[in-house]
């Protein structure tokens, strides 16, 4: 008698052999739910993330920077759209996903619950927030769910472009007038720690991580990604003469890596739970646009139906 494998075991072997899971493949229900949660969270982050950056489009200080920022936010919308479609391959509709966002059932990256206060924040967000996102997304290019992995490959290319644009803004400011440099440093001071928090709780406190790693959804731990980000970003700050706001930051020769200070985990959990400066505002805005657009979507549907009926009639 041959060995008997459960479907779960076979699935596990399948992903461990670095095969991609495709929409019509059998998958454990928990896997499906986990990927839906993660992908939709990602899609919502792209969409909600439009708000803090759209906040500066009308005030961009040159026509060139206005075009770049607008194109960037438009890219984020495109990513959101692409990810919603990819999520729909798991048997859930965009309407359901948006409803989960608006009712608070689904989360988005907490980083977007911070306000963009000055123009330098456009630099800091591009450089740090997109930088941290890329760290995560490069890993996700090898995630086990096929449509997600392929979406990430496409999105990563644009994100690294965004990151360079953000860094360029910071570079210009840091090399500018005294006021501009101060503006850049102030933005770095505010965005540094929330950017580190983007990688999520430390490995000891990350309950879902182990299963996600086992299923090859996640390939690296939160702390590993965070460390990679710090190591990559500190020299970039030094290069343009800005100071990372962490007195404990220092090069560790033995580890060939930077040691850095402890994050304010109270703040992290407070913002995740809804108590950040912009949590309410972001969702209120999203709901407002959605509700104000309802009559437009209804009209478009009604028109499309009429057109279909007319086509049928003329064909008959």
């Amino acid at each position: 008698m041959g060995e008997e494998y459960s479907l779960e075991d076979r699935f596990q072997q399948y992903v461990e052999a670095e095969n991609k899971v495709e929409p019509k493949d059998w998958m454990p229900e928990k896997y499906r739910q986990t990927v839906i949660r993660q992908m939709s969270q990602h899609a919502h982050s792209e969409v909600i993330g439009m708000q803090p950056e759209a906040n500066w489009i009308t005030r961009a200080p040159s026509l060139r920077s206005k075009l770049i920022l607008l194109a960037k936010v438009q890219d984020e919308a495109g990513h959101g759209l692409y990810l919603y479609s990819a999520t729909e391959t798991l048997g859930i509709t965009r309407d359901e996903l948006i409803n989960q966002l608006q009712t608070g059932k689904a989360k988005y990256s907490s980083i977007f619950n911070y306000p963009t206060v000055t123009w330098a924040d456009m630099g800091a967000v591009g450089w740090l927030v997109d930088g941290a996102a890329i760290q995560n997304q490069v890993m996700l290019c090898r995630t086990s769910y096929g449509p997600y992995a392929r979406a990430m490959v496409k999105i990563c290319k644009e994100e690294s472009f965004h990151q360079r644009q953000g860094y360029e803004i910071m570079m210009r400011l840091a090399a500018g007038t005294k006021e501009q440099k101060a503006m850049a440093q102030d933005a770095l001071n505010r965005w540094w720690w929330p950017s580190l928090m983007m990688f999520g709780p430390s490995d000891d406190n990350s309950p879902n991580s182990a299963q996600s790693m086992k299923w090859r959804i996640k390939r690296k731990s939160n702390d590993t990604l965070r460390q990679e980000f710090v190591d990559k970003t500190v020299p970039q700050a030094e290069f343009i003469g800005l100071t990372i706001p962490d007195p404990d930051l220092k090069w560790n020769e033995e580890r060939k890596s930077y040691d850095f200070g402890e994050m304010n985990w109270d703040e992290f959990y407070a913002v995740v739970k809804g108590n950040g400066p912009c949590n309410k505002q972001r969702i209120i805005n999203h709901i407002k646009a959605h509700e104000e657009g309802a009559w437009v979507r209804e009209a478009a549907n009604a028109y499309a139906k009429k057109q279909q009926a007319r086509k049928k009639q003329s064909a008959a």
């Binding site: 439009m50 489009i57 646009a289």
Partner: peptide
């Protein structure tokens, strides 16, 4: 028109 960014009736039209 750029004021519409993130406020469109549906993502496709926002884009």
């Amino acid at each position: 028109l750029s004021e519409w960014c993130s406020k469109g009736p549906v993502l496709e039209q926002d884009i």
